[in-house]
Nucleic acid binder design. Sequence first.
DNA 1: GCCGGTCATCGAAGCGCTTCGACACCCCCC
DNA 2: GGGGGGTGTCGAAGCGCTTCGATGACCGGC
Lengths: 334, 334
Amino acid sequence: MSGRTVTITEVARHAGVAVSTVSYVLSGKRTISAGTRRRVLDSIDALGYHPHAGARALASKRANVIALVLPLRAGMHVPVLMRFASAVVTAARRYDHDVLLLTADEGTDGIRRVAASALVDAFVLMDVELDDNRVPLLRELAEPSVLIGFPAEPAGLTCVDLDFAAAGGQCVAHLAERGHTRIALLGAPAVVYERGTGFARRTREGFVAAVAAHRVKGLALPCEETFDEVYATLSRLLRDQPDLSGLVVHNEAAVGHVLSALRQLGRRVPEDVAVVAICPDDVAERASPPLTSVLIPAEEVGREAVRLVMEKLDGKIVPEATLLTPQLALRSST
Amino acid sequence: MSGRTVTITEVARHAGVAVSTVSYVLSGKRTISAGTRRRVLDSIDALGYHPHAGARALASKRANVIALVLPLRAGMHVPVLMRFASAVVTAARRYDHDVLLLTADEGTDGIRRVAASALVDAFVLMDVELDDNRVPLLRELAEPSVLIGFPAEPAGLTCVDLDFAAAGGQCVAHLAERGHTRIALLGAPAVVYERGTGFARRTREGFVAAVAAHRVKGLALPCEETFDEVYATLSRLLRDQPDLSGLVVHNEAAVGHVLSALRQLGRRVPEDVAVVAICPDDVAERASPPLTSVLIPAEEVGREAVRLVMEKLDGKIVPEATLLTPQLALRSST
DNA sequence: GCCGGTCATCGAAGCGCTTCGACACCCCCC
DNA sequence: GGGGGGTGTCGAAGCGCTTCGATGACCGGC
């Protein structure tokens, strides 16, 4: 590591070629003979050259950075969001891009600012609400974007998500096959439904539809995240519906509480009550007993979002909606 | 929003001044008369001008971006990390900087790369281990850095953290004052101690020292994060030490399991066993009963880390170690 | 043996900004 | 009324890179 930073000019001199030749070796935009390419590449790592990101961005009009817009709202399960975020970073690196982190507190101005200052080339948005105030902004922006989740009016946008309706349906189908005739869905906290967060509602819709299709009795309830409230909800539910024998839990933070509360209410899992969760794998595996679950494929969603945004950067047309099919993993809770 | 992007040249023409004058209005590096400044500022927002980040970085040798290096390791409690991350982003914006997110899977190469390409000006590292492989790299880098957490050999670095030893001590003192004479610490999973993560060890050291100082009996144990293991640990503990009446829990993921297990073991909190937690406020409040806790001041730590790194960017000398004093919040578990 | 066409490389012109030195201008003091 | 010292503003030179048009060198075909 020399002290001063190495420029493309020094690489060119060292390799005995023109600056532009070095640039073409790096970008591959013109053919370069094998011999010259070799000499240039050797010089590059002899000198430890890294292109200056700012200079490159200025000249090429590409920053090679995408923004990850990650509001951190009440009721969102942070570990899941982080899995997405981590997947996005990893995927972006495969396309030689870095990731700028934008949080909510700057609001839409942050998005506008980084777009206008050419700090980033594109946007990946997480935790999208049905009526999301970032959406109108995205529509007027020249920079491409991909949403993880669906707003109410997704036409003209590019959205990726797990097919939560199918997930809710799969859980119902699984319980129905096992012979359960009265089941319940414990979902997100009430505030999340009120905010109109898409995935919570879509799971519920899938649940309701599947309940009808399988001719079983089903009730969908929001679910708060303190032990006491979970306990109260469950004991009320079990008192009012003594034949309830299947539970779908779509709330990572409450999963543990649900199991504790059932234990305390004297119900064994799965003998008395079968439980299916929609949650990340590690949460399901760590529970006691390990839960049959629909896993949330965070890595896959993140990777797909980045792939789509890169295609859009290349000017390609991409599908507006991408729904990833859920996978049910059988464990010992059903 | 006009289609084309507005440059400083257009602002200058619109305001009837030289390009350099606009630049000086923006940077404040030379005195500009009030009248001229006004005209320039008016033109800026009439045209909707935002400086081009790359051009600025190229000319000024400052990207106005800091990197947040956030490995996501097993056993780390993600919500806490995200609180830090979010605090760092918010604080950075106050200094007109943005935040680039770097995760672990690129390893130290990622750090080297973004430094060499002048993508970022400085680094904030989270989740620092005692023997952290990023530390030697930081020492040889020209870019300033601040660590959240302490490595084994922090001399010459700048580190910020909660004073975990004091936190452990405060918990012991609190329980001792309440008259408990035999207490235990349930800490991080064993793997975290083995990895040499500083905060886990420092809490344990503070606990051990305070136990001696207060002449009570105390045992420090690692604590896994599945309900079954927590239950097993606790039942063994209570069997072997029937007079145990105070528990310090320093493991966010296990807090809920500890309370469930105690309930199941027939121990009331706080009547039979008093529990103090070291965890974020929301976790403590959401528990049942709400836990007396030492709160982890994520916002403050993040803010302080950014403040320090900005000082270093300005060439100022900053203290090597910054320890934030823990605050004990009394709730109903003791 | 000359011509047209590749192929590989070069040189120079910017990209949009910061910064340095220069230079009016004005005011005050002797 | 001329000199000295601030102020406020300007012009131009880069920062390190990409990209476009130009230029040789070399090849095969007639």
